[in-house]
Computed example of a mutant assay.
Amino acid sequence: MQTLPITLVVMTYNEAKSIARCLDSVPFAAEKLVIDSGSTDDTVAIAQAHGARVVHQDWLGFGPQRNFATTQASHPWLLALDADEYLTPALATELQQKLPALMAGDVCAAYLRRATIYMGAPMRWYLPSMGEKMARLYHRDRARWTDARVHESLRFDGPSVTLDARFNHENNPSLPEKQLKVLRYAELKCRDWLEKDKPVRMWQTPFVFPLAFIKDYVFRLGFLDGWRGYAIAQTAASYAVYKRMRYYEMRRNPASRESAANALHRHGLDR
C-alpha cells in the first residue's frame, strides 16, 4: 500500500502477544508510534521489529497518556488503536482510499466502527460489539482527549465523518484477564470520582446490578449471543456495582487507597 502522512499511535504495557498484529494491520501509516509505560516482556523489541518508533512514558492515566502520545507524533493526523485492536483489510483499504480527501478538508475527526471478538469468536448480536462507533482518527490541532484516568473520550467541536468498514477488538482473551482489567479500571474511575468529590450514593447500589444486567442482556441483545452474552452482561453489571462499593470504601477508609495501590502495583495493574 502507498504510505500516507498519518501516525498510528498505540499505548502498550506487556503487549508482546498482540502488538505485531496491531502494527501490521496499518501498512499505509507513514509513522508507527508506540508509547510504552515500562513493559517487562518483549513488547518493545517486537514493536521496533515491526517498524514502530518506541517512546517510554511512565503511566499517566488513559487520557493524559493519549494526549502525551499526540505530542510525540510526527504528523498532524493520528490513528489511535489499542494493542488488542487491529484493522480489517476492508477498513485498511477504505482508509487508504478516503484519507487523502479527508485530510485535505476541515474535518476534525472520523468515527470508526469496532467489532468485538469474545471467547474466541466474533459477537453476532450484542449491540456494543457489532459496530460501536468510536472516534479514533483525528487531527491533533482540532481534537483532544479528555483527562480522565479511564473511559477517556476524544473531544472536538467541528465536522466529523463515519467510515463504513470495521476494525476488530480481541476483548480479553480470558475471563481472568477481564477481571484483572475490571479491578484496574474501577480503581482509576474511583480516583477520578475522588478528585471531583462525587457523592457516594450507596443507596443506589442494590438497584445497579439488575438494571445494568437487563440493559446489556435484554435491550442490547446480549441474550441472542447465548452464554457469551450472559457472561458479558454479568461482568458489566458486576463492574458497575464493584466500583461503587470501592468508592464507598475509599471515602470511609482512606487508608485503603494506599493499600490497594500497593497491591495493584505488585501485580502490574497500576498502569
Score class of each variant (00 low, 15 high):
residue 92 A to W: 10
residue 70 T to P: 00
residue 134 M to I: 15
residue 127 L to G: 06
residue 117 I to A: 01
residue 147 D to K: 10
residue 73 A to E: 02
residue 121 A to P: 01
residue 123 M to Y: 04
residue 241 V to S: 00
residue 28 F to S: 06
residue 112 L to E: 06
residue 110 A to F: 07
residue 212 A to H: 04
residue 112 L to T: 14
residue 252 R to L: 15
residue 213 F to G: 03
residue 251 R to V: 15
residue 169 H to L: 13
residue 76 P to H: 09
residue 161 V to Q: 08
residue 45 A to L: 08
residue 12 T to Y: 02
residue 248 Y to W: 15
residue 76 P to M: 05
residue 238 S to V: 00
residue 112 L to K: 09
residue 210 P to N: 06
residue 210 P to H: 06
residue 157 D to F: 07
residue 74 S to H: 09
residue 126 Y to K: 05
residue 84 D to M: 04
residue 119 M to I: 07
residue 161 V to C: 11
residue 168 N to I: 14
residue 211 L to F: 12
residue 223 F to C: 08
residue 147 D to W: 02
residue 60 L to R: 12
residue 5 P to K: 11
residue 138 Y to P: 03
residue 16 A to N: 05
residue 86 Y to L: 06
residue 208 V to G: 03
residue 244 R to K: 12
residue 271 R to N: 09
residue 138 Y to A: 09
residue 150 V to N: 07
residue 168 N to H: 12
residue 43 T to I: 13
residue 212 A to V: 03
residue 127 L to K: 15
residue 256 S to Y: 02
residue 112 L to P: 00
residue 178 K to H: 13
residue 251 R to L: 08
residue 16 A to S: 15
residue 42 D to P: 10
residue 44 V to D: 08
residue 174 S to H: 12
residue 128 P to M: 08
residue 256 S to D: 01
residue 175 L to I: 10
residue 224 L to P: 04
residue 190 C to D: 07
residue 25 S to M: 03
residue 88 T to V: 11
residue 131 G to T: 05
residue 94 E to D: 02
residue 125 W to I: 01
residue 159 P to K: 03
residue 38 G to A: 10
residue 118 Y to P: 06
residue 12 T to E: 01
residue 180 L to N: 09
residue 240 A to E: 07
residue 131 G to P: 08
residue 232 I to C: 03
residue 45 A to R: 15
residue 258 E to N: 07
residue 232 I to Y: 06
residue 219 F to S: 07
residue 196 K to M: 10
residue 234 Q to V: 08
residue 131 G to V: 06
residue 259 S to M: 12
residue 223 F to P: 03
residue 175 L to E: 02
residue 105 G to S: 14
residue 62 F to T: 04
residue 175 L to A: 08
residue 262 N to G: 14
residue 184 R to W: 00
residue 37 S to E: 02
residue 108 C to I: 11
residue 90 A to V: 04
residue 156 F to A: 09
residue 88 T to S: 15
residue 107 V to A: 12
residue 176 P to E: 00
residue 77 W to A: 05
